[in-house]
């Protein structure tokens, strides 16, 4: 009797789901017909006729929308991978300090993590851009031709980074580093205390013990948490639009305004992020498998 009841409810739920999505799709089709927009991607090849401040590859307003989107994607990738790298380094340093013995370092890192984690990223990006960079004087830091930091951005050995790009990198890295620090700290304290006593009693230095005894055992606990922070970082990079950096989301937004092709643009955006995040997940899975392969000891 009971199993019949179960099946009955499951069928009801499935029907409701189909009804709901059917309603949404129907709504979409009706509206597409009503606005006479249709659903196609031929507009991708038309000239974009808007300028981009930053482009890795050559770009001019006469280039196609598709090319503009690719430029946007590359701009996003640039920000994501540089922030990923910086936030990992920063997060590791802070995570290690908060798991260590030094009271001053512990308090400082706890303070850092608290402040950064509990304020919105959007606010932090605004801070780095409007207060951090645009608020700077013309010659805030100036070491002849080596390092210049001013309201135009950062110039380092002739390599120029715009203020939007710099603010975004700093904002994302700092924000993500606080979360990574907690992941690292959690991984380290998951290693039994006896392991610390053990390597210490053998005369190993703290640095050596951390590197050869603690970290290898902490990594299996760290990697999954790290992966989700990296995915968050990639998605958070779309907030670039708030400070006028032309990432994929910002360019998508412009294109929607120009062409009205919201559905197509959102599908493109969805797919690009899906691909990127699948890439990150797979990469981390590979690293995880490599670490776990050496972990015969848990069998």
């Amino acid at each position: 009797m009971k199993s019949y009841k179960n099946i009955f409810f499951q069928i009801i739920i499935i029907l409701l789901c189909i009804l709901f999505f059917g309603f949404l799709i129907n709504n979409l089709i009706i509206n597409l017909i009503r606005t006479d927009l249709g659903f196609n991607f031929s507009w991708l090849l038309k000239p974009s006729s808007f300028a981009l401040a930053e482009h890795v590859l050559p770009y001019s307003p006469s280039d196609s929308y598709a090319w503009a989107l690719l430029i946007g994607w590359l701009n996003s990738l640039k920000v994501i991978f540089i922030s990923l790298f910086l936030s990992t380094i920063l997060g590791t340093i802070i995570g290690l300090s908060s798991a260590g013995n030094n009271i001053l370092l512990k308090i400082t890192s706890a303070f850092y993590v608290t402040i950064i984690r509990q304020t919105p990223l959007l606010l932090q990006l605004m801070f780095w851009y409007f207060v951090g960079f645009l608020g700077l004087k013309n010659n805030f830091i100036y070491f002849s031709n080596i390092l210049k930091i001013n309201n135009q951005g950062i110039e380092f050995f002739g390599l120029t980074l715009t203020s939007e790009f710099s603010a975004l990198i700093i904002g994302l890295s700092v924000f993500t580093s606080a979360f990574i620090a907690e992941v690292i700290r959690g991984g380290i304290i998951s290693v039994p205390k006896g392991q610390w006593e053990s390597f210490r009693s053998l005369g190993l230095s703290e640095r050596n013990g951390l590197l050869r005894v603690i970290m290898p055992q902490a990594l299996p606990a760290i990697i999954p948490g790290l992966t989700s922070q990296y995915l968050n970082l990639a998605k958070n990079s779309t907030l670039a639009i708030a400070i006028g950096y032309s990432d994929i989301y910002a360019i998508n937004d412009t294109i929607i305004n120009q062409t009205g092709r919201a559905i197509e643009c959102f599908i493109i955006l969805l797919l690009t992020f899906l691909i990127l995040n699948l890439l990150i997940t797979n990469l981390m899975e590979t690293i995880n498998k490599f670490i776990n392969k050496k972990k015969i000891y848990l069998s």
Partner: peptide, 9 residues
Amino acid sequence: FQQFNLFPH
């Protein structure tokens, strides 16, 4: 030590 504390990895 009582719990051996060998390095499992």
